[in-house]
Write a protein that binds this DNA or RNA. Structure first.
Length: 763
DNA sequence: ACCCCTGCTGTTTTT
DNA sequence: CAGCAGGGGT
């Protein structure tokens, strides 16, 4: 077995290390996924550990799938019994199995997402008579979440001021409400697992016995609860293999604490540390620039990162006039690099906040280049999708009052606010959750109730439907259950109001249905769990030939030949909310570091002279992080030197360049073509950077004629070379091209430019 | 019971 | 410039 052959000495030391506590400090691009997968394969094939005894925790579901796939290749087959997934997914599975040992939960508990949590908090605030203006639900939720991340129960929560005293009360009630709903939020999945293990050493022993080898990816982003869980599972006997890099810790706001790396030394004194310092990804220039940035952080521990890719093109920094100019410049540059032969998927455009994606998207649409957007309006957050999931969840778990409230009068069936309030009071008097009470009303002829003719018949009718679905639940597939619900609620008629938006919404529902269908015989509980725990980055496939737009956070763990980081301005990166604390500032710098180190060949940094944030536009100051990059790694002038010039030019810029609809945007500058050009066709753009490495093979597709009317219609079935068959959700003419939004079952919603995507109609 | 209008608010990152 | 809560009108 030559599992150790293709590794460098440090990697080999990690992969072949004897069992025990091992901490791998892995710099960016140092092959940590390689080390993890080889370690698992090595355990199985060389050390004869049964896959059954291995648990591997990853940061995203996608990382888990990828690793599983690579291990399969290494071992020539799928290891049976290997547990791999995110902390959340693994905990959900454990809790599902141990549900009989949980004090406050019963089988079929559901997972509440952020929107559901907000509903609960609002409800609690109302119950407690707390002004939701003075105590915004979101803030309360943050307080609750950080308590849970630190494993602090409501009883242990100590209030130091009035706000935290209110938080404590809300937390207490919130937790009781979740339990009454038989629901857990994301944090509960972790916390309840830890609490279960604390209370039930026998249960913990079972898992310790089973999972003798624990591997953790992205260890620097574990929070206190997760770390505690790892320690519990590791116990005195088991092996723990943690891989992380404190310089890439960017989830402090979510409770992550990279000091867990120090805790690891403390709690596992026998541990062995292995440093992975060779970078296989970036050029020397990029790596050096990144090191210069990160070493400015006070608590940064210097590493000796090196690469065998000397030189490389310098980092290009450009100032744009405003965000649309910036976006157009990015897109222009991508366009000319594509003409040089780069594939679309070589590019990533990164930004600090999701809101920034909009200007960039518009520039892509304008240029007729398809792109992939990570995050933003998530499919599962759409109203209609949440409605349908609420129906399914309520049928799965009739105790779920949040879902109940969502569907009780959706579509409208004459159960108004008045009736709902009355109903809630009645259910409370019976000590039933609303779903239970409704079933009682519809099935128990002797039950006492206060409802009169009109309200009663509406409630009775809906209760009848609901009872029917409950009876159906265990007998039919998720898809069939969904169909029954859709049909009996007339949901389609409710959505289709004749507008395009209505059509789109129905198409989304059909897309959800196809997700259920693809799962085959998937159980309702598994379906709901899957839907609750998916992350947007999970669906990122590198096959699509399009640039990727994503936040710096979402970029973690990924790599691209060419990386654009936009909005390098004070207040954005570093973000304004982080500027008055050194800790948070350090995290912003790490975020920038993560972005830089995603790049293989080239980095483009940009900032705007003016930026429009909600409402009006104001002059932006270039980010302090730009000054961290030494002159020798930069192509062009540093922002401070160009400051004067840009102010001089502001008066020229300020005329007639604001509109997106005229063709101005496409005539604006690309990088490497620094001065403004007179109107020219984009094809004439000069190559952005002549020192770029060898381009990839050219795969330019001929563009179709610009359509005057859409060739595609909502609801139409189409086929795409990479994504397969899908349903058109929307199609519209934008500027020079037709923009088609298509739902591909199992892949997701893609927005495509018809001329480039090569869509064909099916059927 | 439902619709529409207004005026207010709050805007980081996500499993 | 959202998205939403609350109020007033139908």
């Amino acid at each position: 077995m030559d599992l150790l052959d293709n590794l460098n000495p440090a990697q080999r030391a990690a992969v072949g290390a004897p069992p025990g506590a091992i901490l791998v400090v892995a710099g960016p691009g140092s092959g940590k996924t390689r080390v993890l997968t080889h370690r698992i394969a090595y355990l199985i094939s060389a050390m004869h550990v049964s896959p059954w005894h291995i648990m591997a925790v990853t940061f995203t579901n996608k990382a888990a799938r990828e690793m599983e796939h690579r291990i399969e290749q290494l071992l020539d087959g799928r290891p049976q019994g290997l547990l791999m997934g995110t902390f959340h997914a693994i905990c959900a599975r454990i809790l599902r199995r141990e549900v009989d040992n949980l004090t406050h939960y019963q089988r079929d508990f559901v997972i509440f997402d952020t929107a559901d949590q907000l509903q609960v908090v609002k409800h609690v605030l109302a119950e407690l008579n707390i002004d939701n203006k003075k105590f915004p639900p979101g803030k309360m939720l943050n307080g609750i979440s950080s308590a849970k991340n630190d494993l602090i129960s409501p009883a242990e929560y100590t209030a130091t001021n009035y706000v935290s005293e209110v938080t404590r009360r809300v937390y207490e009630r919130y937790q009781l409400t979740l339990q009454a709903n038989n629901a857990m939020d994301f944090d509960d999945l972790l916390m309840n697992t830890v609490l279960l293990f604390d209370e039930r050493p026998d249960v913990l022993a079972k898992y310790q016995e089973r999972y003798r080898h624990i591997l953790v990816d992205e260890f620097q982003d574990t929070n206190a609860t997760q770390y505690r869980l790892l320690r519990q599972l590791a116990g005195e006997q088991n092996s723990i293999f943690a891989v992380g890099d404190s310089d890439q810790s960017i989830y402090k706001w979510r409770g992550a604490d990279y000091r867990n790396i120090q805790n690891f030394y403390r709690d596992f004194p026998q541990s062995q540390t292995i440093l992975l310092e060779q970078n296989y990804r970036s050029t020397q220039v990029i790596l050096d620039a990144a090191i210069e940035v990160i070493r400015r952080n006070r608590d940064h521990i210097p590493k000796k990162l090196f690469t065998e890719r000397p030189g490389g093109s310098k980092i290009i920094i450009r100032e744009a006039y405003n965000e649309s100019d910036e976006a157009a410049t990015v897109v222009n540059t991508i366009e000319s690099l594509m003409l040089q032969g780069y594939n679309g998927n070589a590019f990533a455009v990164m930004y600090r906040t999701n809101a920034q994606s909009r200007a960039i998207e518009e520039a892509f649409v304008q240029a007729g280049i398809p792109y992939r957007l990570v995050g933003a309006t998530q499919f599962y957050q759409r109203r209609e999708i949440k409605d349908i999931i609420a129906y399914l969840r309520l049928v799965h778990n009739p105790l779920d009052a949040v879902s109940f409230n969502r569907v009780i009068n959706t579509p409208m069936r004459g159960i108004g606010q008045q009736t709902q309030t009355q109903f809630a009071a009645w259910a409370a008097a019976l000590e039933l959750q609303p779903g239970e009470a409704l079933v009682r009303l519809a099935t128990d002829p002797d039950v006492q109730h206060p409802f009169n003719g009109r309200a009663y018949s509406a409630l009775y009718a809906f209760g009848g439907l609901f009872a029917g679905w409950l009876a159906l639940r265990d007998r039919v597939s998720v898809g069939d259950l969904l169909d029954a619900i859709l049909e009996q609620t007339n949901y389609r008629a409710y959505l289709e109001d004749g507008t395009e938006e209505g059509e789109e919404r129905w198409a989304n529902v059909m897309e959800l249905r196809s997700v259920a269908e693809i799962g085959g015989d998937i159980a309702l509980s598994d379906f709901l769990e899957q839907v609750a725990l998916v992350a947007e980055t999970d669906n990122l496939d590198h096959e699509a030939q399009a640039p990727t737009l994503l936040t710096l956070h979402a970029a973690k763990g990924l790599e691209f030949p060419i990386v654009f980081i936009t909005g390098l301005e004070e207040g954005l990166l570093p973000h304004s909310r982080s500027m008055d604390s050194e800790d948070e500032l350090a995290e912003e710098r790490r975020l920038f570091y993560v972005g830089l180190t995603r790049a293989r060949d080239a980095v483009y940094l940009s900032h705007a002279f003016r930026r429009t944030s909600w409402g009006d536009s104001s002059v932006a100051v270039p980010s302090r992080f730009l000054a961290d990059i030494p002159e020798e790694f930069i192509d062009g002038q540093r922002p401070s030197a160009r400051r004067r010039e840009s102010i001089d030019r502001a008066s020229t810029w300020d005329t007639g360049r604001k509109s997106w609809n005229n063709n101005q945007a496409r005539q604006q500058t690309a990088w490497g073509d620094h001065e403004r050009r007179s109107p020219a066709r984009p094809e004439q753009a000069r190559p952005a950077e002549s020192r770029l490495p060898e381009p990839y093979s050219r795969t330019e597709e001929p563009r179709a004629d610009r359509p005057a009317n859409p060739n595609f219609k909502t609801g139409q079935k189409v086929r795409h070379g990479k994504f397969g068959e899908g349903t058109v959700i929307e199609s519209k003419i934008t500027g020079s091209d037709e923009e088609v939004t298509v739902a591909f079952p199992g892949i997701g919603i893609k927005r495509l430019a018809a001329s480039i995507a090569g869509l064909e109609a099916v059927g």
